[in-house]
Amino acid sequence: MSSFLSVRDLKVHFPTVDGVVMATDGLSFELQRGKTLGIVGESGSGKSVSSSAILGLHRKSSAIVSGEIWLDGVDLLQISDEEMRRRRGKDVAMIFQDPLSAMHPYYTVGNQIAEAYLVHNNVSKKAAKKRAIEMLDRVGIPQPDRRVDDYPHQFSGGMRQRAMIAMGLINNPSLLIADEPTTALDVTVQAQILDLLQDLQKEFDSAVMIITHDLGVVAEMADDVLVMYAGRAVEYGKCKEILTHPEMPYTWGLLSSVPDVTGDTSAKLIPIPGNPPSLLNPPSGCAFHPRCTHMDKVPGDLCRTEMPELVPGVSAGEHLKRCHLANPDEIYATEILPEIAPELVEEK
């Protein structure tokens, strides 16, 4: 079965005065309708840049996008700009991180939502506004027929994100990209928004890409997870598989540097040393090697000299990893897990 969305060897390069910034460098993944893919990474890992490329949002003057992006049998990188524009917001929609700055301060919420409907449907303004009210109602805004004429600053943060979702879903897109949809929100509001996204996904049977730095959000939402580092996928597979048997030290670092609310209070926070790499001058070999604490377990100078391929992991199941370590599952079980979640070790 061919995938609904299939990204192959996607590269997004930004030429600058100082050299080429390789924001995304050879990214491939697949996504089916009704499924959710979580893309995890820190700032500068290329996760947002890649999603913007799927939507065709990069300006030709500043970015070079290459590779293949197949959506429902069409390569989005081959079609004309006008054709891409007609799909944007209709087949593929996007929800952004900060709903306050992502909405125009001078136009009413209703105007901005209706605009998304008007541009792809040949209807009257009145009909578009009616549809906007329906969508506001659907995403749980109270008194939608009154709030439709409010300006974004009159909405609370959670309501603005609901309005953004209404705007994104008004044309029943088959692919929804949510770029850090809850990062700017409080936890209880985040829970509301995540619930809403899940309900709507079921209702519209859309494919959802959720981009976040929060593994917790991914754990709750995603079927598949793709961990990005320095513009490349370093681990990719089924969500549960990745979270229970991670095989790449960067993923271990992400898991062990974040505390949680239920685990043992004596669990330790093990930070990833150093800083994220520069995309202008990425480190040689494995991009993570300057921050990796397991290099001594790889024979020779392999980590420093050779970029590992994205290959099937040691454990069974669909699980790809980009690492030279030969026995990551053992290292994880004996060295990492006891540190970060001693209570899970005892259960076994």
Binding site: V187, A191, L194, V217, A219, K240, T244, D260, V261
Partner: peptide, 15 residues
């Protein structure tokens, strides 16, 4: 109680 239940939890969700 509501606040705590709203926090997504990696380890719980994973197991």
């Amino acid at each position: 109680q509501a606040l705590l239940s709203a926090v997504p939890d990696v380890k719980q969700a994973a197991i």
